[in-house]
Design a protein around this nucleic acid. Structure first.
Length: 763
DNA sequence: TGGAGTACACCC
DNA sequence: AAACGGGTGTACTCCA
């Protein structure tokens, strides 16, 4: 039984725990503790006495800091008042440790401590919190800023995730200090720290008479943090060949996490009236569609009803009744037969697709389809109102997912629909305007930078250097025109060509095959391509338009296998020539059928496994290969490859497409992240971040042109720094009261930046 | 009834 | 020979 848990339970249930007249004093309501628990407390009196006895006046509290200087790496942990809402809590106590010596500081000692340690590195666990708390509590935060700017600010929570990515491409989940310290430093931290939620009490207490636990628990965290860091550094060091942004980009991610936490705290203002109006309009539309569907005999039994069959089972957020999927599939099957359609079976279940996207193409051929598709679409959009119930929303950002991008939730502002007037419901706070800045075609620029670095040349880079729009450039090539000629075309002819080019430019570098390209182009850009056309375009794009892509999209499968087997590639070439290697992939994955539907001959399958066995010098794979453990797991271990960004972040084992995608997507993300930090550093109030778009609130009547110029300059220079290239980075920006989808840069005659106002009023 | 698994739709 | 990646949120079904 945990003594401290018991004490905490008493406290939390209105009891008292303390010291009175020379002995332990416990008061709690009868029945709160079992007889055994009461007995346990009695037994532990000596221990309790140690814990609760106030110290003598002359006694110092444990770990008291009095000017000592610590080693080069300092673990730091803030204890604060309870966290409420999005305001930063008040700093109560700071613990610091270099792994050998550990101290606690009063907030008023912090400035002196930092001054003395201004050239040290600092490590926190969840730095986004500690950094901001410390920063706010200092009168002069310049030393603290210096630590961050000089790349001496670290985060064990972040590095732990980055190492997981580098070792196993595991999804980056923040782990608490207990787990991290256990793994890395072998330290057991008490999960039920009874003082964790009580630090506000210390504010009003004389520290020398406070219970020891306030200090011992806090101290342990700083110590665990720095010790974990020291071990993690060694583990991360094995991977990092590039360290411009710290081990595995840890320094950059740490800075980004601070900026992102600030964005969350800032929040976004909603136009409540508009939200309500739009929500009601959507609800009305859903209602109307339901009523019309009910009129159709075809739709019989579609909606779920209660037992009495008097009411639909409604979904609260969308206002749509639940639908019997079985019945829906019956109806859809009927339509398919009648119209001689061949809808695909999807997913693991191999059931008839219920995809609105698929059926939507036939919506005008059948009254049921028409209504059902509309209903699903409208209900889907209604769903987004669920996240927009407050006047001010505070979207939460994760600093890092597998590619290095951020993610967002509660609500996920990064996936707000572009159509339907959703973004427009976000407004500037009273007395402010929104400056929205987008990096233009940034992933193509980072791709060009990667290619140039890897192959020594990039046509795409040249296109950017000449300030040519790469989509127009591609379009012109495909239309068989000179760029000049293409640009002279009337807009109506230019636009569809450029749209097509856009689909190709964005899709193909990511590893898109012809088939996927067809659906991608259709869905993303409304462009119709045949598979043959797509294959043709693809070939032309990578061979003629941007020849570096041919290299970029090349895969040396034999080399990958050789590296995974820890053997020579010549041997792989010899025993598994390209034709066999392709088959080996299928066999290892568990397929027994060739592409033509025939089974592989048992002798061939034998040969493949025996070759793998003979080639393998990797002890970790021996067993699986010998046992012929065909399946996704072994497939990945044999045929997947690590990938690294030029910033120095690594994913352990990824597929072909992931390996193509991560370098430029991750690089763009890193550049955007550095921008966020710089904006924070310069005191801008950022309120949203959507991968390549930043929304900043500027005070009304400030010098918009100058402020915008500053923001743009910061963003461009940050991105360039991360790209490590002279490929130009360009942005588009606009100033508006709402987060308009189509807002554009507007200037007065004398060049001053003006508020953009919509051509079409809000619906 | 609640969690896991699945399918789908939204974003860049 | 063939390959887009990365997310979050909701609805629905199945099953203990």
């Amino acid at each position: 039984m945990n003594l401290l848990q018991l004490l905490n339970r008493i406290r939390l249930n209105g009891g008292e725990v303390g010291w009175r007249e020379g002995q332990v004093f416990l008061k709690f309501r009868p029945g709160l503790l079992t007889a055994e628990e009461v007995e346990a407390l009695r037994q532990a009196e000596a221990e309790l006495s140690q814990l609760l006895r106030p110290k003598e006046e002359s006694e110092s509290y444990p770990f008291q800091w009095s000017g000592e200087q610590l080693g080069p790496e300092v673990g730091l942990d803030c204890e604060t008042t309870l966290i409420e809402g999005f305001e930063l809590p008040k700093l109560v106590l700071v613990s610091v440790s270099d792994g050998q010596r550990t101290f606690v500081l009063k907030p008023e000692q912090l400035e002196q401590f930092l001054q003395l340690h201004r050239d040290r590195s600092f490590v926190c666990h969840h730095t986004a919190f500690d950094f901001r708390v410390v920063e706010k509590s200092l009168r002069d935060p310049s030393d603290w800023w210096t630590v961050a700017e000089a790349g001496r600010l670290h985060d064990t929570m972040m590095l732990d995730q980055l190492i997981g990515l580098a070792e196993a491409d595991s999804y980056p989940r923040p782990r608490n200090l207990g787990q991290v310290a256990k793994q890395w430093a072998g330290m057991d931290l008490n999960k039920d720290d009874p003082f964790r939620l009580r630090y506000a009490e210390l504010l009003r207490k004389d520290w020398s008479s406070a219970e020891e636990g306030f200090f011992t628990y806090a101290a342990k965290d700083a110590e665990a943090t720095v010790r974990s860091w020291q071990k993690m550094k060694l583990a991360a060091g094995k991977f990092s060949s590039v360290r411009r942004f710290g081990l595995l980009t840890e320094q950059l991610q740490t800075l980004a996490s601070i900026a992102l936490a600030d964005i969350t705290a800032n929040g976004m203002e909603l136009d409540r009236e508009l939200v309500v109006r739009n929500r009601d309009a959507f609800a009305d539309k859903v209602q109307g569609l339901i009523e019309r569907l009910q009129q159709l005999p075809q739709a019989e039994g579609l909606f779920k009803q209660n037992r009495q069959k008097t009411l639909f089972v409604m979904n609260e957020t969308s206002g749509k009744p639940s639908i019997h999927q079985k019945r829906l599939r019956e109806i859809l099957q009927g339509i398919a037969e009648e119209k001689e359609l061949s809808p695909p079976s999807t997913g693991k279940t191999k059931e008839l697709t219920t995809s609105v996207k698929w059926w939507g193409a036939y919506a005008d051929e059948d009254p049921f389809l028409e209504l059902w598709v509309q209903l699903e679409q409208t209900a889907k959009l209604s769903q987004f109102f669920g996240g927009l119930t407050e006047k001010r929303i505070h979207p939460k950002y994760s600093t890092m997912v597998r590619t290095g991008r951020t993610s967002c939730s509660s609500p996920n502002i990064q996936q707000l629909p572009r159509e339907g007037g959703f973004r427009e419901m976000v407004t500037a706070a009273p007395g402010a305007v929104l400056l929205t800045v987008d990096f233009a075609a940034i992933e193509l620029r980072t791709l060009a930078a990667v290619c140039e670095k890897t192959f020594g040349f990039s046509r795409l880079a040249e296109v950017f250097r000449q300030r040519v729009d790469p989509h127009s450039y591609t379009a012109a090539m495909f239309a068989g025109m000179e760029l000049e000629q293409f640009l002279q075309l009337p807009k109506s002819q230019k636009k569809p060509l450029r749209q097509k080019a856009k689909a190709l430019n964005f899709g193909i570098p990511g590893g898109l095959g012809a088939k996927s390209l067809v659906s991608y182009a259709k869905h993303s850009y409304g462009v119709d391509l045949s598979v043959e056309e797509a294959e043709d375009f693809r070939q032309k794009l990578i061979a003629v338009v941007y020849p570096e892509l041919e290299l970029y999209l090349r895969e040396d499968a034999a080399l990958i296998v050789a590296e995974n087997l820890k053997t020579d590639r010549q041997l792989v070439d010899q025993y598994l020539p390209a034709s066999v290697l392709g088959a080996a992939k299928k066999i290892v994955r568990g397929s027994i059928l060739k592409k033509d539907g025939e089974e592989y001959l048992p002798t061939f399958v034998d040969r493949v496994w025996n070759c793998l066995k003979g080639l393998n010098k990797n002890p970790e794979l021996r067993f699986a290969i010998e046992q012929r453990k065909a399946g996704e797991g072994l497939f990945r271990k044999l045929f997947w490859t690590p990938v690294e960004t030029t910033t120095g972040r690594r994913r352990a084992s990824v597929s072909f497409s992931q390996a193509r995608n991560t370098p430029f997507q991750g690089l763009a993300a890193d550049g955007a992240k550095l921008s966020l930090w710089r904006l924070y550093r310069e005191g801008f109030r950022t309120v949203a971040f959507v991968h390549d778009e930043v929304v900043v609130e500027l005070p009304e009547d400030s010098d918009y042109s100058a402020e915008a110029e500053k923001v743009v300059q910061l963003m461009v220079s940050s991105m360039s720094e991360v790209m490590d290239s002279d490929i130009p980075v360009e942005v588009e920006f606009s100033l508006s009261r709402r987060w308009w989808k189509n807002a554009e840069e507007v200037r007065s005659e004398d060049g001053q930046l003006l508020l953009w106002s919509p051509e079409v009023p809000v619906s």
